[in-house]
């Protein structure tokens, strides 16, 4: 064993001696690497930092355009003036459908003529009421056409409060700036003000995850308890693939998809 070890040592020593003339170059290289270790990490941090700034701060500024509503509106003032709270203007029709943003027909009861001195009211009466043009309100809560949402089921059936999804809109004295997603055309309020998708209140976001969240939390009392977004579904499948039977998603009413029927909420 000794002889073998010694032999190996000899060989390596020989090799080092043979490489003599080049050793300084090797040293230089090593020195350079050690010296540049700082900048490389710096570059990494720079890249990380820059992209985080772009992703969290620049991107949302680029993604959304800011639009003003065609005319100003004071909810507080109007809620005080009407008898029936929100439902005075945002009412259910006889057939159970929800009227959404009021049409001229509702405003005209009071605003057939100019009532006050507010320049926005004057503009409203002159530009819209007298010309019989509907106000092109920008709707913060407008959902894509494929979404089927019944206000009646939630407000009249489940006795939910408007605030749960729409926040304290009725307490606003002016209309906030409408931030329109340049790609989809929908309001920023759907994804939520937080670009990271974080929410503090139930009304901060209006995505399908938020529907699902509320439906999960209240699963004991409601019918559609198994709403799953495609992402949740994908994760569930992957978990099932790795260790079958551990995924916790329940089976819904549909035999094909094992979920609640898609068409309950999707047109």
């Amino acid at each position: 064993m000794d002889t073998l070890d010694d032999h190996a040592k000899d060989i390596s020593e020989d090799a080092a001696a043979e490489a003599g003339p080049n050793s300084s170059l090797e040293m230089n290289l090593k020195e350079q690497d050690t010296g540049a270790g700082g900048p490389i990490i710096l570059f990494f941090i720079l890249g990380l930092f820059a992209s985080l700034v772009v992703g969290w701060i620049v991107f949302p500024k680029l993604l959304y355009s800011k639009k003003k509503q065609p005319i100003e509106f004071n909810h507080v003032f109007h809620v005080e003036a009407v008898d029936n709270g929100c439902e005075s203007c945002h009412f259910f029709r006889e057939d159970g459908t929800f009227s959404g943003a009021p049409k001229l027909a509702q405003c005209i009861d009071c605003h057939e003529e100019i009532q006050g001195i507010s320049p926005d009211e004057i503009k409203f009466v002159e530009e819209y009421v007298s010309k019989e043009r509907e106000v092109p309100w920008l709707i913060y809560s407008r959902q894509p056409d494929c979404v089927f949402f019944s206000h009646a089921a939630h407000i009249q059936g489940a006795r939910m409060d408007c605030v749960a999804c729409h926040g304290h809109m009725g307490e606003s004295e002016s209309l906030k700036v409408y931030e329109e997603n340049r790609i989809t055309g929908y309001s920023r309020d759907i994804w939520g003000k937080s670009i990271g998708g974080f929410k503090k209140n139930t009304w901060d976001r209006m995505k399908m995850d938020d529907c699902a969240e509320c439906h999960r939390e209240n699963a004991a009392n409601i019918e559609r308890k198994n709403i799953q977004t495609p992402t949740q579904r994908l994760i569930g499948h992957m978990v099932n693939l790795v260790s079958p039977g551990t995924s916790t998603f329940d089976k819904g009413g549909s035999i094909q998809t094992e979920r609640d029927p898609c068409f309950a909420c999707h047109k």
């Binding site: 890249g47 992209s51 670009i195």
Partner: peptide, 21 residues
């Protein structure tokens, strides 16, 4: 340096909402 900048950028982008949004 450039590569680590890119890798840092990629990591940062992945940690930002940009690709997901």
């Amino acid at each position: 340096g450039f590569l680590s900048f890119v890798i840092g950028g990629a990591a940062g982008t992945a940690l930002s909402p940009l690709p997901w949004k």
